[in-house]
């Protein structure tokens, strides 16, 4: 059974990703770093409708927070009633509370496939490199490109990198901060704040254990998501950054950093 799952995984996810990335690298001057950036853009382009739906869902949830807080106050002593009323509210507002979870889980197979791809094409271990042979399509460009150049900027894409791990943490924190929702209760606010800190730290730590090629994907992905989010709803939670941080921003007081775009309200 595990053999069949493995074969299906290879056929549908791993092989296409590996070959597309090698071919991309070949056409981008044997630069696997650019290939990773290209793949990240491509994935974000393909999943853009889902991303948009997730953002809309999150936004709708945020808009419901005052009503949910009201319900929580009203049914503080009756959890069952509270749950029922919350569900009714979600239903009437056309919001699916799990709507933002599926897009969150979607990237995971991509991470795993990208990790396997990097281990193979970067020849990190002889075992992983040997296993690559059977994954390659019969394309001359693919065979000519192997093994790929491991260098990109200061990075060896096959090994972890401390500086990139910091960038991973930082970019994810910015992303989390940007999309932070206004919590209905102090407990929920605490939980949201914990998520904002824990996720970036967790990813930063994991970046120290995986090839920097994967960490590069995380950074670029976070940057793309920040850009998309900005055009969707402005700077969001980032506009509440402490004043000390704001001083670092070169455009300072008059910057759009401090003033979320006017169109924010129109996009609700």
């Amino acid at each position: 059974m595990s053999d069949i799952i493995g074969q299906v995984w290879n056929l549908i996810i791993l092989q296409p990703m590996t070959n597309v990335m090698i071919a991309l690298s070949h056409f981008l001057g044997n630069n696997f770093g650019l290939s990773i950036i290209g793949l990240t853009l491509l994935i974000n382009l393909v999943t853009y409708p889902l991303t948009l739906r997730q953002m809309k869902s999150s936004k709708a949830m945020m808009d419901l927070q005052p009503k949910i807080a009201e319900l929580q106050r009203k049914y503080a002593k009756d959890p069952n009633m509270l749950r029922q009323e919350q569900m009714r509210l979600y239903r009437e507002s056309g919001v699916n509370p799990a709507g933002c979870l599926i897009p969150m889980l979607l990237p995971m197979p991509i991470w795993i496939a990208l990790y396997q791809t990097i281990r193979g094409v970067m020849a990190i271990t002889p075992e992983s490199f040997l296993g690559l042979s059977g994954q390659l399509y019969n394309w001359t460009a693919v065979f000519a490109a192997i093994p790929l150049n491991t260098q990109f900027l200061w990075l060896n894409l096959g090994t972890p990198d401390y500086l990139l791990a910091i960038f991973v943490g930082l970019s994810m924190w910015l992303q989390q901060k940007m999309i932070a929702q206004k919590a209905a209760t102090p407990q929920a606010a605490q939980q949201t704040q914990m998520m904002q800190v824990m996720m970036p730290i967790m990813f930063g730590f994991f970046s120290l254990s995986v090839p920097s090629g994967l960490a590069l994907y995380w950074v670029i992905n976070a940057v793309i998501r920040i850009v998309i989010q900005y055009f969707f709803s402005g700077w969001g939670g980032l506009s509440t950054l402490p004043k000390t941080l704001m001083l670092w921003w070169p455009l300072s007081e008059n910057s759009f950093w401090r003033k979320p775009p006017a169109r924010q309200g129109n996009r609700r």
Partner: peptide, 15 residues
């Protein structure tokens, strides 16, 4: 649940 899955997946990715 998402956090747990994330942790598991990342552990798989780790060394």
């Amino acid at each position: 649940a998402v956090l747990s899955i994330l942790l598991t997946m990342l552990a798989v990715l780790s060394s």
